[in-house]
Design a protein around this nucleic acid. Sequence first.
RNA 1: GGGGGGAUUCCCGAGUGGCCAAAGGGAGCAGACUGUAAAUCUGUUGCGGAACGCUUCGGUAGUUCGAAUCUACCUCCCCCCA
Length: 376
Amino acid sequence: MNSQKSHTNFELIKKSSQTAARLGKLYTPHAVIETPVFMPVGTQATIKAMNQDELRDMGFKIILGNTYHLYLRPGHELISRIGGLHNFMNWNDAILTDSGGFQVFSLSDLRHINTAGVMFKSYIDGSSHEFNPERVIEIQEAIGADIIMAFDECTPYPSTWEYTREAAVRTHQWAERCKAAHSRPDQYLFGIVQGGLYKDLREWSAEFINALDFPGNAIGGVSVGEPKEEMHNVVEWTAHLLDENKPRYLMGVGTPLDIINFVMQGIDMFDCVLPTRLGRNGSMYTTYGRINIKNARFADDFTPLDPECDCYTCRNHTRAYIRHLYKSGEILAARLATYHNLYFYKRVIEGIRKAIAEDRLVEFRNEFMAKYGKDD
RNA sequence: GGGGGGAUUCCCGAGUGGCCAAAGGGAGCAGACUGUAAAUCUGUUGCGGAACGCUUCGGUAGUUCGAAUCUACCUCCCCCCA
């Protein structure tokens, strides 16, 4: 057991008797992370609208950065020169960098894929760049995150079985090449399962990636616009095939209820832009469901965003004030809302961990849904 | 006192005989957002139940088959010269 723990740097603390949920500890060079965990997305070396102290004070121990964005600007060499991303952005806890695989999907009109890699046009200045497994590992090693991701191809929804299979073959080859190219022992390289919405491809991909024996395994290719049930199926097909002694990371997910549901399927790590993006766009999470603070009905609502929240925003400001800030285009609106939304996620994930510890996750989910209502 | 330019739907502003309930922007109202090309994007915004009909482009009276667009007068605003 001990040798396995040191190999994966993941310690399984407790398994739920009700569901596939687990409690764990992920040891990284910069932080010990209690799982299940939600990781805020900081694509460009910043969680938009937040400063590092605020994130740390909320209790986030790991955040995301993005290889593609940081490579284009300011450049991984520059980041490397000041000692890596931790130093550059003055973040002393853990960082995970996404490999750019999602940009293969999201910037689809700006790229060309072949087996060797992906040719990209910069969304900033149109210049051409090539990403391939070796290059992506080199960049991620220069950036220096605690956890780095294999370069994968995130296929769009919908895709044919044939194309999804081709993309998965590439993703598998790239995973092997990433593993071979990876040289920094103080970084953990996670593999990524693809396979779209096809059960046979997902199972095949999960078994293939699992067999490569990465210190952690991710499920990619979801949250690309597919129906919720499809996402649920993908996790159901794959999660149990991934080594239970290693962390399982569901990439890009999700809503608060998604997180609860997928924890119950054995997922340990999540990241999602929703709390930050929705915050900037005027949508706020509350115990009783999401609200659009810009709606007229909040104009003279002098209560906090969420009556059951004790975050900085809710302790100090009213819905009416925050609505006013939005309508006025004031930057503080985005800050207060982002803080609140991230804090909401923090409360949910802490609630999940506590519920697993007490072995009452199912009850926790029911209580959450009774108040929160439909999932959005 | 003389000469010139204007008044358009909540605001700014286009439109100079029919294709105009009237471009575009703003504001308003609502919706979307899941490994962030996102402080973004979409819809909607005279009235009536929609096909369609009705009322509207400073005011009044005209010309015309037809006017926001042409004419006359009126009201108000701006600029220039005394």
